[in-house]
Design a protein around this nucleic acid. Sequence first.
DNA 1: GATTTTCATTTGTCAGACATTTAAAAACCT
DNA 2: AGGTTTTTAAATGTCTGACAAATGAAAATC
Lengths: 247, 247
Amino acid sequence: MKIDPANPADLSAQIAAAIRDAIVAGKLIVGDRLPSEAELADQFEVSRSTVREALKRLAAQSLIRTQRGAHGGAFINRLSYEDAHAQQITTSTLLLGMNDVSFDTACEARFAMERACAALAAERRSPDHLATMRAEIHRQGQPGLTDEAFCASDVAFHRALVDAAGNPVLSYQLAGAVEAMQPLMNMITFTARSRGAIVALHTRIADAAEAGDGPAIATALQELENHTRQLAQSVFAARARPAPQGS
Amino acid sequence: MKIDPANPADLSAQIAAAIRDAIVAGKLIVGDRLPSEAELADQFEVSRSTVREALKRLAAQSLIRTQRGAHGGAFINRLSYEDAHAQQITTSTLLLGMNDVSFDTACEARFAMERACAALAAERRSPDHLATMRAEIHRQGQPGLTDEAFCASDVAFHRALVDAAGNPVLSYQLAGAVEAMQPLMNMITFTARSRGAIVALHTRIADAAEAGDGPAIATALQELENHTRQLAQSVFAARARPAPQGS
DNA sequence: GATTTTCATTTGTCAGACATTTAAAAACCT
DNA sequence: AGGTTTTTAAATGTCTGACAAATGAAAATC
């Protein structure tokens, strides 16, 4: 594990990359303890501050965790689904927010992926998942719900559908995509009429899941996608009318 | 933007979180320049080293980029698809590698997601995508190809299929899932016979894409998933036989 | 007016110091 | 001997002060 002092890139970035590569390559495995900061500074022939900056970079990616005290140090961290999930949501949200991704593009991607678990969800849904879906549908029908709360419940419903597929890898990937959409969805105003349509479609999805009918879930999701995109289009059109030349 | 000095957590982690939240909330937008390290140290009432460690954490997530010199500093970075993609691959690869995710689970998730772009790919594939797919199929048929090279070509083929869906968000999400599988796929030995079967299925996929037949792509992908899982099962069974009680 | 030099600003790196945490080792007291 | 307290060593967390290197703007020069 060496670094190139002639490289113009930051030394701390090089050191972080070297250690990260060792982890990805399996040379350092979960639970292993890195040498102390002082020892690493000696090995790489840099100061302790530089080593520390490198370790902070790795900590930011949940690759290591540090412990203070006599037998403390930096340990290779087991990347949990939870950590990975949180990172993915941050990344996806920023990606969508910073790159002017159109609502249509994000919506299309999200529903395409969600339809991918329709068959598995129909096959494996547990009573727990069904109960969660029913509960969220009930909440969505209550009057006086703010748009934000409606959106949050929508996310919870779809999250339950995804989890019903019973594949943690799929859940991790999809939850990121679904939750990253939330800031975009929050821009929409849901009228009572469109809420009714959404609740009806959610009910169809829950019924189909209960009946184990995968294709019916997929069809309902397709209709939900169409409805959502139309709704967004009309909302954005109405919003653009007062200021057509708006930046 | 404040931090709590009584919080037992690292000050640098708190500062990083405060700035990250401001970015996610849109209070800091792409291109904005953060105050200089010295000014941040004054604002947060910590030393410059602590501020630097916080900034390195953000840099590790591609949230900021730094520039040296008179009018340099830390700037809010536009998260590119490329950066997000690279991060996702690292995260997914480690997640799969560290959590003993079974080959079946990962495989199921990957193909489920990939089938999600079958319809879109059939509709939008460009001659470029078809050419890439054909080229990779041709490479996969050549004798003397190592297993690693075969796997790499397999990834390139599926990458082209995903890109053919013409949705950058979908590409970003799926590419991570597909490429994260590569280390698991590399554990498999591909016999000449199974390579032939895979190439035949790839050809069917390319033909269906050319014909604009989405369902046919999905069917072929399903068969490819079945074949891959059977192959993995037999390989792992053969490997387990010499040491059935192996840890 | 164009070129060169100077200069101020900012990040990158280093060295040394002290505070804090932690677990093991040592000392101490039944 | 056994249990409790104290000490100690090792490690990370933070601070201070310094210098190097890069970079763009301003000043000086031709």
